[in-house]
């Protein structure tokens, strides 16, 4: 964006909103919104504490396992759905239901099924992330150039070869798009899991700070979470741009 002939750096709008936040915080309009500078000061204070690092580790672990399983399950299922009419007809209604279902409401059921530990949190995370990965992978596979599939068959590809050497790569731009959105949903899943199932990780911190009205602490953790998911999303967007060249030339 340009203003008065000056090229503004990316995300300049964040500076504007940050200044507004600081201003509203300084005039003490509401306890809910402390000044941004105070939040950063708090972050500096709690950032190195063992409690914070433990929470970060717990959240990162549950998130990593949950989203990895979502990819490991979601991508092959999506490819199968895109390839096979029968499997698609069978699974598509469920995928669509779960994609739009209020998954938070299912969390108590998961607790009954899988207990109160890491397992239930991981499953919650995966459940939030997996459906969009399935759906995007399916969409990617469905628009594969038919003659690429015929090519693989005519040169003697086994179904497994076709799966790993053609379908996966041809759908990669869509898969990465799905993984990116899935990860963002997974962030939501892991926090909801940690809030509702067992009070650990960042969920526990949110719970602790919010119930004690420690808004500076609350916002500090939220900013860390935002920064982390932003970094992951940007990394995946960068990967997507790397394969963009062939998304355009695919057909």
């Amino acid at each position: 964006m340009k203003i008065f002939g000056y090229q503004l750096p990316n995300m300049s709008s964040l500076i504007l909103w940050g200044l507004l936040w600081e201003f509203v915080g300084q005039i003490e309009l509401t306890f809910f919104l402390p000044p941004l500078s105070a939040i950063f000061a708090t972050l500096w204070e709690i950032g190195g504490t063992p409690a914070f690092l433990k929470a970060l580790r717990e959240t990162a672990q549950a998130f990593a396992i949950g989203t990895t399983s979502a990819i490991v399950i979601g991508v092959p299922v999506g490819i199968l759905m895109g390839k096979n009419r029968l499997i698609d007809e069978l699974l598509l209604p469920w995928v669509n239901i779960f994609l739009s279902a209020p998954l938070t409401a299912l969390v108590p059921v998961l607790m009954v099924l899988f207990g109160f530990g890491l397992k239930a949190i991981v499953i919650t995370t995966a459940l939030f992330a997996v459906w969009i990965i399935v759906l995007n992978t399916r969409a990617g596979v469905m628009q594969i150039n038919r003659s690429l599939i015929e090519m693989a068959r005519s040169f003697g590809a086994s179904p497994f070869d076709a799966f790993t050497k053609i379908y996966f790569w041809a759908a990669l731009p869509e898969i990465l798009g799905g993984v990116r959105i899935g990860f963002i949903r997974g962030v939501k899943g892991v926090i909801i899991g940690q809030l509702l199932i067992s009070i650990v990780g960042f969920g526990a911190l949110f719970e602790l700070y919010a119930s004690n009205f420690l808004m500076k602490h609350f916002w500090a953790v939220l900013l860390v979470l935002f920064a982390l998911s932003f970094l992951i999303a940007e990394f995946l967007a960068w990967l997507e741009r790397k394969v963009e060249y062939y998304a355009a030339s695919r057909n």
Partner: peptide
């Protein structure tokens, strides 16, 4: 079915873009 005694050249080339 397809076999190693035949090879196909496609109208739209059918190259793997990646």
């Amino acid at each position: 079915g397809p076999g190693p005694d035949r090879a196909f050249v496609f109208q739209d080339f059918a190259l793997m873009p990646w």
